[in-house]
Design a binder for these strands. Structure first.
Lengths: 192, 192
DNA sequence: ACCGAGGGAGAACGTTCGGTCTCTTTTTAT
DNA sequence: ATAAAAAGAGACCGAACGTTCTCCCTCGGT
């Protein structure tokens, strides 16, 4: 039936499991869904889940890792265009608003996860922190190249606006949120 | 032992119950703590909980109602000072940063609750929406009085910054978050 | 003196949770 | 051809979940 090899890490059942977990965790939260829900919708048996993941927590971490890589990919794709620096910032902001306006948008996967795992020492919480550190560094770098000074403050300002937009994007009119966000980003880009 | 009457709604056991629930829900999340934890720390029996609340959900709603009233009280206290309009905005912003910098800060109770109750039709989610609507209206009103035009956009901008600051306040250095937030608010206040 | 509400103590309910187990079948690699 | 790995099917575990229940004691108001 399948043409590709079934090499351990990229098994088809594992893929189905992870994409199902991603969808359900993102749209319904983490603590409120059990593994039974996931194995049922992934059409996988219980044993298969625990063959690929040590437990639910590892599945959650894999979900966040996947989300992290997706976002990094988006940013890399924008950078590869080699636009003028301010336009690169604008393009990244636009991809964010596209996410907010897309159907099924449920906020930032990482902010949502942090709300469910408040303990800073928990692996899930730390995965959130790691992603956010990368994003902040990236924002500072992009705004520095765009000539914003001090770039640190500008980067933090950008991230703060993004966090607000992502958090509110599923609690208010996404179009208005996007407009407000883009306007705020122009404010950061504009020389003081 | 107690001097006041034991009139239904303000019973001492109920108060202990609600303040305990508030503390635990805020610091540890909602889905991840069971009623057993709450009744144990509140030193109340199971029957007492269900005499005062129909179930856990009603306890969650009472927790959010209490948080809502606390925040409204803060804003009212600032307004009562009758400062010049821009200073009123600054004072509200400062109370927000004081929250962020206070020990035990765990983000916005409402954003956290929304992350755990994504279903828009759920009573808890709706309580979050109601609180946010009030806050947005208040922000627009204050910024309008401060001479910001258009006040709608300014209010949305203010709320977005606040959301970002509250969300990130427990994921990054609170002092830097506060500084960034206050700086952003000055940007909103400053005439374009 | 009395009655009813509030509260304490704790057993019990059925359900769901995350996780482990055995057994069989299919698939892939050598 | 054969052994190892992957997957399906499903029983099973102890624990925790939210909820309801009975029983008893202590008050406060009439």
């Amino acid at each position: 039936m399948s043409a590709s090899t079934t090499g351990g890490r990229t098994s088809e059942a594992r893929t189905r499991l992870l994409s199902t977990a991603t969808r359900i965790f993102y749209t319904e939260g983490i603590h409120s869904v059990g593994v039974d829900r996931i194995i049922e919708e992934a059409q996988v048996t219980r044993a298969t889940l625990y063959r690929h993941f040590k437990g639910k927590e590892e599945l959650v971490l894999a979900y966040l890792l996947q989300a992290d890589q997706a976002i990094r990919g988006q940013v890399e794709a924008v950078r590869a265009q080699e636009l003028p620096a301010p336009d690169t910032v604008r393009a990244v902001a636009r991809t964010i608003t596209e996410g907010i306006r897309s159907s099924g948008f449920r906020g930032c996967a990482f902010l949502n996860a942090a709300a469910e795992y408040p303990d800073p020492s928990h692996p899930v919480h730390q995965a959130v922190l790691a992603h956010r550190q990368w994003f902040l560094e990236t924002a500072v770098e992009l705004l520095d190249q765009a000539g914003c000074t001090p770039a640190d403050a500008a980067g933090r300002h950008f991230v703060m606006l993004r966090d607000g937009a992502m958090a509110a994007g599923c609690l208010f009119d996404p179009a208005l949120i996007s407009e407000t966000f883009l306007h705020g980003v122009e404010g950061i880009l504009r020389p003081a």
